[in-house]
Amino acid sequence: MSAPIRVLVCDDQVLIRTGLVTIIDAQPDLATVGECGDGGTAVEMAERLRPDVVVMDVRMPVLDGIKATRRLAGVGVAHPVKVLVVTTFNLDEYVYEALRAGASGFLLKDAPPDRLLNGIRTVATGAALLDPDVTRRLVGKYAARIRPSDTKDETRLTPRELEVLRLIANGLSNSEIAASLFISQETVKTFVSRILTKLDLRDRVQAVVYAYRHGLVT
């Protein structure tokens, strides 16, 4: 049996933090290794405990979640940590800044528990996650700012790869794409890997941005 995914929870509201810890620790494949109430402590604890994923709030004292994410997962960090931003604030600027800071995903606190748990598992694997409720509005507004120098030609993708890319941009998971196209999840993973490689993209978040910037999704 593989070791559980190690999670650090950072939220300045004690009740919410306790609730997140309770939900996470109830899962056999997840385990919290610590909790804290500000971004500064999160950075210190993450460097010491080396969690697989940090569940990070945005608005916090001492150091906010965006700055803490940049210190943990930003460009040039020696030992980057995967960060899943979870916040009550459904504001475009928070999503954009969190992703620019290096976060692997973004969820709202009113998301159902299973979406949070799946989000942690998804981010832990190295994949990226965007709450489907905010993806379209976010990328539509900020796509030109995220990759302003992108000049790649999507015609290098096969018709099936383009189809998968459009579904990714619409917020579908691998399982949902598999069901939509009547193919296996392993085949979807292969398509996603090919898309990222061909377009020189880091993860699904950049794939979503690429699709919007090139008019593949409206």
Rank of each mutant, 00 (worst) to 15 (best):
G39Q: 08
T122Y: 11
I24F: 12
E97D: 14
I5W: 06
P4Y: 08
R100E: 13
S184N: 04
E35Y: 03
V164H: 08
V58A: 01
A98M: 13
L107I: 00
A98Q: 11
L108K: 12
G65F: 03
L91I: 10
A26F: 13
L91C: 01
L130Q: 09
T41E: 15
G40A: 03
T158R: 15
L107M: 03
L108D: 07
H214D: 00
P132S: 06
S193D: 15
S173K: 04
K109P: 01
G126R: 09
I16H: 03
V7I: 05
M56C: 06
V9E: 11
T32M: 10
H79Q: 14
R100K: 12
P28C: 00
V192K: 07
A179M: 13
R166P: 08
E154W: 15
S184M: 04
V14K: 03
V7T: 09
S2G: 07
A178C: 05
L196R: 05
G19W: 00
E47Q: 13
L162D: 10
P113I: 02
T187E: 15
A103Q: 08
Y210C: 13
L165E: 14
G126T: 01
P159Q: 13
V55M: 08
L15H: 06
Y96I: 00
H79T: 13
I16P: 01
G126K: 13
S193F: 06
T32Y: 14
R213G: 08
D131T: 02
D153V: 07
E163M: 14
I24Q: 11
G171M: 11
T218Q: 06
G74H: 07
L199Q: 05
C36T: 12
V62G: 03
P148Y: 00
V55P: 05
Y212Q: 04
